[in-house]
């Protein structure tokens, strides 16, 4: 862990006169892998977008230095570009990435450079997501904002994507803000977790310390199963 990268104080987001996030305060340190966890409707994606400046907010958001941000949005997948004659090479050309750099980036995410001539819309969900990770890394970001990056991928593929993201996070000394509703990945990949519930309850800290059965029950309701928590803890 390093210096504070940014600090949020009394942060509130109101959309269409409805308060979505109110009076939230937390700090993110350099090289942290922070997962924003919560059930659907708890305002995770809204928080991420407000931190990115895509939605208006009240309160303070102070960066220690101007960040270079990479963003993997929710809902951008191979189906979004299926109608376009857009190859993987074309997709990188939209950002004017040099061909040699593209091959190196693809290698980092485990894709062969043969994929360059494939249509982006023909890739599998997992391949597209890897390609998108490489595409975002081309700008050499210092912080990655991930909004449910595995929604278009099956469970096994999702775990592979997270393993890849964790590897990249370690190698590049990145800071990661990751939004998910999936408890499984929290223990495996995060240094810290910020949990949001629909009822305004929050928690912040290292997942193994703060995600107690009582906290999870508050977050997700009584029906949540805890075997994942304990299973991961035993490893």
């Amino acid at each position: 862990m390093g210096e504070t990268l940014f600090e949020v104080k009394n942060f509130s987001v109101t959309l269409n006169h409805t308060p979505i996030i109110s009076d939230l305060s937390f700090k993110v340190e350099e090289c942290e892998f922070l997962t924003i966890l919560g059930p659907n409707g708890s305002g995770k994606s809204v928080l991420l977008k407000a931190l990115l400046g895509l939605l208006p907010h009240e309160g303070e958001l102070a960066w220690s230095a101007k960040p270079k941000i990479g963003y993997l949005p929710q809902g951008l997948n191979q189906a979004s570009v299926r109608d376009l004659p857009l190859t993987v090479a074309d997709f990188f050309a939209l950002k004017r990435v040099r061909r040699a750099d593209v091959s190196a980036l693809l290698a980092q995410v485990g894709l062969d450079k043969g994929v360059l001539s494939a249509r982006a819309g023909d890739l599998s969900g997992g391949e597209f997501q890897r390609m998108l990770v490489a595409w975002v890394l081309a700008s050499d970001p210092t912080i990655l904002f991930l909004d449910e990056p595995t929604t278009a991928v099956d469970a096994a593929g999702g775990e592979t994507i997270y393993s890849l993201l964790e590897e990249i996070w370690r190698k590049r000394n990145l800071t990661v803000l990751n939004v998910t509703h999936d408890l499984n990945i929290v223990y495996a990949h995060s240094t810290n977790v910020l949990c949001l519930s629909r009822f305004g309850r929050r928690c912040f800290g290292a997942p193994r310390e703060i995600l107690t059965p009582a906290v999870l029950r508050d977050l997700y309701g009584a029906e949540v199963k805890f075997y994942t928590h304990e299973g991961k803890d035993e490893r």
Partner: peptide, 14 residues
């Protein structure tokens, strides 16, 4: 423009 067409928010962050 193509980037904005594909994903407006991502284009903005880029």
């Amino acid at each position: 423009i193509m980037l904005v067409n594909i994903h407006e928010d991502m284009a903005r962050i880029e």
